[in-house]
């Protein structure tokens, strides 16, 4: 396994528990980490990239203990933080050069070459002399992935990378990640956007309230949700009643009433019929239904 997390817990100084007894084995390839905001994804990411020290537990990254061998971990790590928007006053190429130099690429000509290749790869070569802070959101995110990939890391951690991107940039970004994952790299993609996982990850885990709610493949997650999604048509009065009792995930007006999709372990009645689940349904099931057992 590329990354092994055992018994990981983390508490903030105010006593708030961010992560509780996380146990995860993350293999090579693209690994999705799904969860709502506040689930503890970012905390886990920051621990994985050595920005935070966990309160308890053990993490092994490609054979290196994250507590005692941070330098080695950092050497094989690439990291793209959430909201990668605020830059110091560097030009695109300078920024990437700086990031490259800090990874140990001390030979300037080699570094220059690597930087140019990476800029070509992420489609920023033309913008190389622009100040990074003047780039568009998508370009900034691409610059972010470029700095994370510049030294060809074994582990790449990307935290909520597609938030705020338009569909075209989102697809472009996913493709970049997929390309990177094909080169024997472990990519941990933390997101609350279900589509990011479904389109690119073969393995995933779902976090909610600091705990792992699911570990497996997206398909496995779907299969666990099988039979828990219902479709039904109701009147206005019935809709209000159902909305009180169940997790309604789709509401489409239909004649004088509503065409609803509901996630529920039991049949909610009102003529509900089973509906084939997608990852969004599974996400709702695991975040809102399953943990209430």
């Amino acid at each position: 396994m590329s990354i092994s997390i055992k018994g990981l817990s983390h508490y903030y100084p105010n006593g708030k528990r961010a992560l509780t007894d996380i146990n995860l084995e993350i293999p090579s390839g693209m690994f999705g980490l799904l969860g709502p905001n506040g689930a503890g994804k970012s905390t886990l990411m920051r621990i994985l990239v050595t920005l935070m020290e966990p309160t308890e537990g053990q993490i092994d990254v490609c054979g290196y203990d994250i507590r005692t061998q941070r330098k080695e971990v950092r050497r094989i790590l690439g990291y793209l933080p959430q909201d990668f928007r605020f830059f110091a006053k560097y030009k695109v190429r300078e920024f990437l050069e700086y990031a490259a130099a800090l990874t140990g690429m001390t030979n300037s000509s080699q570094r220059g070459k690597a930087v140019d290749e990476m800029l070509e790869q992420v489609g920023l070569y033309e913008a190389r002399d622009r100040y990074a802070q003047n780039l568009s959101g998508g370009m900034k995110r691409r610059l972010g992935i470029a700095q994370a990939l510049i030294h060809k890391p074994k582990v790449l951690v990307v935290d909520e990378p597609t938030t705020g991107l338009d569909p075209e940039e989102r697809i472009r970004f996913r493709n970049l990640l997929s390309e990177a994952s094909s080169k024997d790299t472990t990519i941990i993609l933390s997101t609350h956007i279900v589509g990011d996982i479904s389109s690119s990850c073969t393995e995933m885990a779902m976090l909610n309230q600091g705990q792992v709610m699911f570990r497996g493949s997206p398909a496995g997650m779907l299969s666990e949700t099988e039979g828990k999604v219902w479709r039904l048509q109701v009147t206005n009065e019935q809709y209000a009643e159902i909305n009180q009792k169940y997790a309604v995930i789709s509401t489409i007006p239909h004649g004088l009433g509503w065409d609803l999709q509901v996630v529920s372990k039991e049949n909610p009645g009102y003529g509900a019929v089973n509906y084939p689940p997608n990852l969004e349904h599974a996400y709702v099931y695991f975040t809102e239904i399953k943990d209430k057992d």
């Binding site: 990239v49 050595t50 920005l51 330098k71 080695e72 950092r74 050497r75 790590l77 990291y79 793209l80 933080p81 959430q82 909201d83 990668f84 928007r85 605020f86 830059f87 110091a88 560097y90 920024f95 700086y98 990031a99 800090l102 990874t103 140990g104 990074a132 972010g144 700095q147 994370a148």
Partner: peptide, 18 residues
């Protein structure tokens, strides 16, 4: 102060330099 505010600083913090 700027170091604290900039996201870009964090990516440098994850580099192997001491």
């Amino acid at each position: 102060k700027r170091d604290k505010q900039l996201d870009t600083s964090e990516v440098f913090y994850t580099r192997p330099l001491s």
